[in-house]
């Protein structure tokens, strides 16, 4: 039972990512999109939070939302997978048994 968790709010101003991480079990996946993509970047005060879960949880970030905000895919944390388009989001949904959206 692999579950997909989605986070679309900035982890700098909202507790959604923290709640998500606290509830995500090993083997599940987290997708960062919309304003949530800021958490995928290297060199921020929350980078370590993402790095600490990468061994247990697959983390994805949506490329179009990074590019819209001028965030370079080169500066995404190593081990976080960049999805090229929203079709990648759809694929992820189909590959998981269910989805929890942390709004």
């Amino acid at each position: 039972m692999a579950m997909l968790h989605t986070v679309n709010k900035s982890a700098f101003e909202n507790r959604s990512l923290d709640s998500c991480i606290a509830h995500a079990k090993p083997g599940s996946s987290i997708l960062l999109f919309e304003d949530g993509v800021v958490a995928a970047m290297e060199g921020t005060v929350i980078s370590d939070k993402i790095k600490s879960i990468l061994g247990d949880i697959k983390v994805y970030v949506l490329g179009p939302d990074l590019r819209a905000r001028g965030l370079s895919t080169d500066k995404v944390i190593d081990g976080v997978t960049v999805l090229e388009d929203y079709g990648g989001f759809v694929d992820l949904v189909t590959e998981h048994d269910n989805v929890q959206a942390w709004l």
């Binding site: 900035s10 700098f12 101003e13 304003d35 800021v38 490329g63 179009p64 939302d65 590019r67 819209a68 905000r69 001028g70 965030l71 370079s72 388009d85 929203y86």
Partner: peptide
């Protein structure tokens, strides 16, 4: 706070279907 992201260089919104107002 997150307002600093409004001024990021190289914003490209073609993939999200919104106008780039930067």
């Amino acid at each position: 706070d997150d307002g600093v992201y409004q001024l990021m260089k190289g914003q490209d919104t073609t993939g999200i279907g919104m106008k780039n107002f930067s």
